[in-house]
Structures are given as C-alpha cells and as structure tokens.
C-alpha cells in the first residue's frame, strides 16, 4: 500500500511575486532607473500615448520601452520609430507580466544609463492588477468608449494606480461618458490618484502628463 502524507504549504500565491517585485524595485532605485508600468484594456491607446510621450521626453531623459504582448511585434515596431531602445516581450499566452518576466525583459534590453523605462503591459484590467511588476509607479489608461463605469467593474486596477489617463476625450460628444461621475468613482477607490484627461491622437492635455512623468522620474532618480 502506498502511503500518502499531507504537506502543508500555506503560501500566498501573490506573495512570492510581491517579494520579487520589491527586490527589483530596490535594485532599480539603486541604479537610478524609474520603471513605469502602463496598463489598460486592449485598444485604450497605450501605444499611441507612449509613442508621443517618448518623443516629448527623449531629449531630456534616456528612455527604454518594453512592449509586452501575447505574441506579436506590432507595437515594438511602432515604438522603434522613436529611435529609443525598445524590446518586445512575448508572454507566451500569459495575460500579465510578473516581476520575474519584467526583470528578464530589463536584462534583455540592457538597463545601463536609462533614466526611465516604460513597460506597456498586456491589455487587460484583471491580472496585471494582481501582479506587481516592480515598477516605481503604475499608470492606467481608460478610454472614453469603454464607459465611466469601469471603476465599478475593476476596482482593484483603479486602486493600485498612481495616475490615470482618461484618453480619447475627442469622442466625448458621441458617448454618454460622465467625466465627473467617473472621477468621483476613481477617487473613492484611490484618493491620492492623479487623473489627467487627454487626447493621445491630437496631444491635447498631454503636457500635464509629461510634466508628471518627468517630475516623478527626477524624484525617483535623485536619491
């Protein structure tokens, strides 16, 4: 007769990743590299926003971009047009990046002399919220066509973000998106969050965002 035993593990699944993420964050702080993790639903405008952002800041900061995608290279090709260091990370079907994959990406790209690394996370509002990547700050992009009730449906995502960009404000007249109600819902989940309405296509409202990112990067890197 085979004898089975019970082996108690009692480990929180997210805890393991949290430890790796804290470690990575500390190393990045030491190296003076600010890692920004950008999350949104697919199509909210991450690539469009980030490309403009890189172009606006690349003369002042050394920037690297990591594009995470399930298995395509489209975003990395678009981003490469800016001339900064870009790496495409394939998550191989995974719907989020964890701290280990982020570290591999950073190592693959080479982190020397980078002031700012931007991570375009996999388009999804559920799992990226549960996996700390080790980023200094988390940003989220919500686009107007997705609706003002998204904070009610994905509370965790909104509660972990430091900054929220509300994108595609050019289409506000065609959607019944209640900006005030949306902001109020978000503030309830995250009282200190910075909210900036933008139009990534035209650049409207983006100055305030560049300013925020530039200031936060400097703050992180000055020690």
């Amino acid at each position: 007769m085979e004898k089975f035993r019970i082996l108690e593990i009692k480990e929180s699944v997210f805890e393991d990743n949290n430890v790796q993420a804290d470690l990575l964050r500390a190393e990045l702080k030491e190296q003076k590299t600010f890692l920004l993790n950008v999350m949104s639903s697919p199509g909210a405008g991450k690539t469009t926003t980030l490309k403009k952002t890189v172009n606006a800041l690349k003369d002042q900061l050394n920037i690297g971009v990591m594009e995470a995608d399930i298995d395509s290279d489209v975003d990395a090709a678009t981003m490469a047009e800016t001339g900064v260091r870009v790496i495409q990370l394939h998550t191989g079907g995974m719907c989020h990046l964890d701290a280990d994959m982020t570290r591999q990406g950073l190592e693959g790209m080479g982190m020397e002399n980078l002031d700012l690394v931007i991570l375009e996370n996999v388009g999804n509002l559920v799992c990226p919220a549960e996996f700390d990547t080790g980023a200094a700050k988390n940003a989220m992009i919500l686009s107007v066509p997705e609706g003002d009730d998204k904070p009610l449906k994905y509370p965790l995502m909104f509660s972990i973000c430091d900054v929220l960009l509300i994108n595609k404000i050019d289409v506000l007249p065609y959607f019944n998106f209640d900006m005030e109600a949306c902001i109020e819902r978000v503030k309830k989940l995250s009282p200190n969050i910075k909210i900036i309405p933008i139009c990534a296509q035209t650049g409207e409202g983006m100055e305030e965002w560049y300013e925020w990112l530039h200031t936060e990067t400097k703050k992180w890197n000055e020690k």
């Binding site: 089975f4 035993r5 019970i6 082996l7 108690e8 593990i9 009692k10 480990e11 929180s12 699944v13």
Partner: peptide, 11 residues
C-alpha cells in the same frame, strides 16, 4: 481576497 496554496497530498 485570499489566494493560498494550502497543502499537497503526496508521497
């Protein structure tokens, strides 16, 4: 909110 690996039954 928990998500915990409680135990395994093993040999």
């Amino acid at each position: 909110r928990e998500f915990i690996i409680k135990e395994i039954v093993c040999q």
